[in-house]
């Protein structure tokens, strides 16, 4: 970072801090509720791409109306922040702790009017969720949830590591190439059902032994040859040996 920019950055942060000192967060009811720690983190780690007020720059999309759901999805799955706008946006270990993520999410939410972090009750109908999952999700994420590479460099990630909240957020937000599932497509009950099914996929619909890499026919082929046929050949050699 050039010296001048660094200086400007410090000035901005200092100004922000000073501003907050004058206006404590929990001040008045009806206030958007800007969180000082959130704003501080935002200015430090996000503003250089998304703009100081979330208005977006050529390096990053506007965050004014993405809402808390989007912020929480990208931060809690470690997809954000990235060091370079050209970095691949994929699941990583989160860069922040829970409190920091909460503060950032609250701040991004205060930038405009986006959907809040969904409150997912764990009473979804698993069977209905399975049908919806196979209809809407399995064509990219796979019926076993393992995900694959799609065309044009797009990858559908595995859903096997997502929390219920993250699944619900992904449906609202439509990260990357994923479509947004509006309430007209998936209503409240249906969203809860899909979330419940993904949770069930993670916590064990496996029967009949080790599921291997869950890549279906590819695994089965490797096991059929690497275990099945190979062991048969060894058996044949052993049995045919003359004494």
């Amino acid at each position: 970072m050039p010296r001048g920019l660094r200086l400007a950055f410090c000035v901005v942060v200092a100004a922000g801090l000073a501003w907050f000192h004058e206006r404590p967060v929990s001040a008045q009811p009806g206030d958007p509720g800007r969180h000082p720690a959130g704003e501080h983190l935002y200015r430090r780690d996000c503003a250089s791409c998304h703009g100081p007020a979330g208005e977006g720059t050529y390096r990053g999309v506007p965050l004014t109306d993405v809402g808390e759901a989007s912020a929480h999805f990208y931060l809690s799955t470690g997809r954000m922040p990235i060091d370079d706008p050209y970095d691949e946006i994929r699941r990583r270990d989160p860069a922040y702790g829970e409190a920091e993520i909460g503060a950032l999410v609250e701040f991004v939410g205060s930038l405009g009017s986006g959907p809040p972090v969904p409150d997912v009750a764990d009473d979804g109908d698993v069977a209905a969720g399975g049908s919806l999952y196979r209809l809407h999700c399995a064509q990219c994420h796979g019926s076993t949830g393992v995900g694959v590479a799609l065309a044009a460099g797009v990858t559908a990630p595995s859903v096997l590591h997502s929390t219920p909240t993250q699944v619900a957020e992904a449906l609202i937000v439509g990260p990357g190439a994923m479509p947004v599932f509006t309430p007209a497509v998936l209503g409240d009950d249906e969203t809860r059902a899909v979330v419940a099914y993904v949770d069930a996929l993670q916590s064990g619909l496996d029967r009949g032994g080790h599921a291997m890499a869950r890549s279906g026919r590819m695994d089965e082929t490797l096991a059929a040859w690497g275990v099945g046929v190979l062991v048969m050949l060894v058996l044949a050699r052993t049995i045919a040996r003359r004494r």
Binding site: R134, A138, Q139, C140, G142, V146, V148, G216, A224
Partner: peptide, 10 residues
């Protein structure tokens, strides 16, 4: 509906 990764037996 559809699922991936899809393929026949080897």
């Amino acid at each position: 509906a559809a699922t991936v990764p899809a393929g026949p037996d080897w």
